[in-house]
Simulated scan of single mutants.
Amino acid sequence: MGQCLSPCCEKQGPHSPAGSLGRDSAQGGQSNHPASLYIAGVPVSDSKDTGCGEPSTPGSEWKMFTPYPKLPPIRKQGGATSEGKRMSLVSREVSESKILALFELYKDAEEDCILADGIERFCMDLEVKPEEFVVLVLAWKFGAQTMCEFTRAEFLQGCKALRADSIKSIQSRFPELLADVRDRQAFKDLYRWTYTFGLDSASGQRTLPTDMAITLWKLVFSQGEPPVLQRWLEFLEKHSNIRGIPKDTWELFLNFTEQVGDDLSSYDDTEAWPSLLDDFVEFENDRHNQNVTTD
Rank of each mutant, 00 (worst) to 15 (best):
G41F: 05
G41D: 04
V42L: 08
P43Y: 05
P43L: 00
P43V: 02
P43N: 10
P43T: 03
P43R: 06
V44K: 05
V44I: 08
V44C: 10
S45R: 15
S45K: 14
D46C: 08
D46M: 05
D46G: 10
S47E: 00
K48N: 04
T50E: 04
T50R: 00
T50H: 01
T50I: 03
T50G: 01
G51D: 00
G51V: 06
C52A: 00
C52I: 02
G53C: 06
G53I: 04
E54I: 04
E54F: 01
P55W: 04
S56D: 13
S56N: 11
S56R: 12
S56I: 09
T57V: 13
P58W: 02
P58D: 05
P58I: 00
G59V: 08
G59C: 11
W62Y: 14
K63M: 00
K63S: 06
M64E: 07
F65Y: 07
F65G: 01
F65W: 01
P67T: 11
P67S: 15
Y68T: 06
Y68C: 09
Y68E: 02
P69I: 02
K70L: 10
K70C: 01
K70M: 10
K70W: 04
L71I: 09
L71T: 15
L71Y: 07
P72E: 13
I74N: 14
I74A: 06
I74Q: 11
I74H: 14
R75V: 09
R75M: 07
R75W: 02
R75D: 05
K76N: 15
K76R: 15
K76T: 11
K76W: 05
K76L: 13
K76H: 15
Q77K: 07
Q77M: 12
Q77L: 14
Q77V: 15
G78E: 06
G78F: 02
G78Y: 04
G78Q: 09
G79V: 09
A80I: 07
A80H: 14
A80Q: 13
T81S: 15
S82W: 06
S82H: 03
E83Y: 10
E83P: 05
E83Q: 10
E83M: 07
G84D: 12
G84C: 09
G84E: 06
G84H: 07
K85H: 09
K85D: 01
K85I: 01
K85V: 05
R86I: 12
R86F: 05
M87T: 10
S88L: 03
S88N: 12
S88F: 06
S88H: 03
S88Q: 14
L89Q: 14
L89M: 14
V90M: 09
V90R: 11
S91Q: 13
R92E: 11
R92S: 10
E93A: 12
E93H: 06
V94D: 02
S95N: 07
S95W: 08
S95P: 01
E96P: 04
E96L: 10
S97K: 10
K98G: 01
I99Q: 01
L100K: 08
A101C: 11
A101Q: 15
L102Q: 12
L102E: 09
L102H: 04
L102D: 04
L102I: 02
L102P: 08
F103T: 12
F103P: 04
E104V: 12
L105H: 14
L105M: 15
L105Y: 08
L105E: 15
Y106W: 00
Y106T: 03
Y106C: 11
Y106I: 07
Y106S: 08
Y106A: 14
K107V: 06
K107P: 02
K107D: 05
D108V: 04
D108A: 02
